[in-house]
């Protein structure tokens, strides 16, 4: 595990590894400030990108006079514009995340902190927030690596005890945050009303969405036996089951169908879907799997 057990979310080792990484966006975004990130938008910077024909109204300062002298035609010189990136990490803080060893919630926070740190180091605008974000403790928008402590402080203060539906939480997030940049949603998607509506809200905002579907080992391989009364920790719903081999087989079928369904839903809509287990260390997930799939580099 990349953290020590006393609550440190990020270990120095992991931080060192993360420093060399950066977040990758598949879309071109325009940030509010010029950043370190090269945007595909051509603009004012030192790095030359291309020429294009002059059309009336263009800034005369960018006309390439040398070309004009040689070809007797007006060309406009275009430069790469460097931008900052908006990075959002949205953590599911429903009680169902408070299961597993380490708990899925802690794992989600570690993941969010790590990704957020990469953003901070690269000068991106980072906002890490829980889904049931309360008005009393709004998530700060951070920039620069010196803001790391604030991010960690905020994350440490989060508790997995908020009751909400994914759809409502997504809706309220969209209202409060503009729809540009990278959004990493870390959730177990265990919502009886469904996760599809929530994702649709987020898609409508034109985020570059990454979904990390986090499930605990216990959910993959339930170690239950006998006649049980299963109580849902979120709504107290009761399911009476007699655990038999066929039932366990059936549960696993249902689980894999659930994962396939989510993956399929995401793939159709351009959301990058990552299944994750809480027994895979965070650093391995980031440096291995997420890197391979293109969230970081």
């Amino acid at each position: 595990m990349a953290t020590n057990s006393n609550g440190e979310l990020l270990s120095p080792d992991l931080l060192a590894k993360l420093e060399r990484m950066e977040l990758v966006s598949r879309k071109i975004f325009r940030g509010r400030m010029k950043g370190e990130r090269r945007s595909r938008r051509k603009g004012q910077s030192v790095e030359f990108a291309d020429f294009r024909n002059y059309v009336p109204g263009d800034d005369l300062r960018f006309i390439d006079w040398n070309t004009y002298a040689r070809l007797d035609r007006l060309f406009l010189k275009m430069f790469m514009e460097e931008e900052d990136l908006h990075f959002y990490a949205l953590i599911d803080s429903s009680p169902s995340m408070d299961f597993g060893e380490p708990t899925k919630f802690r794992y989600a926070r570690q993941l969010a902190a790590a990704l957020g740190f990469i953003g901070l180091v690269r000068g991106d605008r980072v906002k890490v927030l829980s889904m049931g974000e309360s008005a009393s403790n709004p998530a700060p928008a951070l920039r620069g690596r010196h803001q790391l402590w604030r991010m960690l402080e905020y994350l440490q203060g989060l508790e997995p005890n908020e009751q909400f539906t994914l759809a409502d939480a997504a809706k309220s997030f969209c209202v409060r945050n503009s729809g540009k940049g990278i959004l990493v949603l870390i959730s177990d998607l265990m919502d009886k009303t469904g996760y599809e509506q929530a994702l649709r809200y987020l898609l409508a905002q034109d985020f570059d969405i990454y979904l990390i579907h986090l499930l605990s080992v216990e959910e993959f391989e339930p170690e239950v036996q006998g006649d049980l009364q299963l109580v849902d920790c979120e709504d107290g719903d009761v399911a009476e089951v007699t655990v038999t081999a066929p039932l366990l087989r059936r549960y696993k079928q249902t689980l894999s169908a659930f994962i396939e369904q989510a993956r399929d839903f995401c793939n159709r809509r351009g959301i990058l879907y990552f299944p994750a287990r809480n027994d895979v260390p965070v650093d391995r997930l980031i440096s291995g799997y997420l890197r391979q799939r293109g969230l970081v580099r």
């Binding site: 995340m97 009886k192 959910e219 339930p222 239950v224 006649d227 299963l230 109580v231 089951v241 249902t254």
Partner: peptide
């Protein structure tokens, strides 16, 4: 005789789905 042992789980979502047709 079925005296079921209560057990808290993250979600009964998948379990309900599994025993639905039962």
């Amino acid at each position: 005789k079925l005296k079921r042992r209560p057990l808290e789980v993250p979600s009964t979502y998948l379990w309900h789905k599994s025993i639905e047709d039962l």
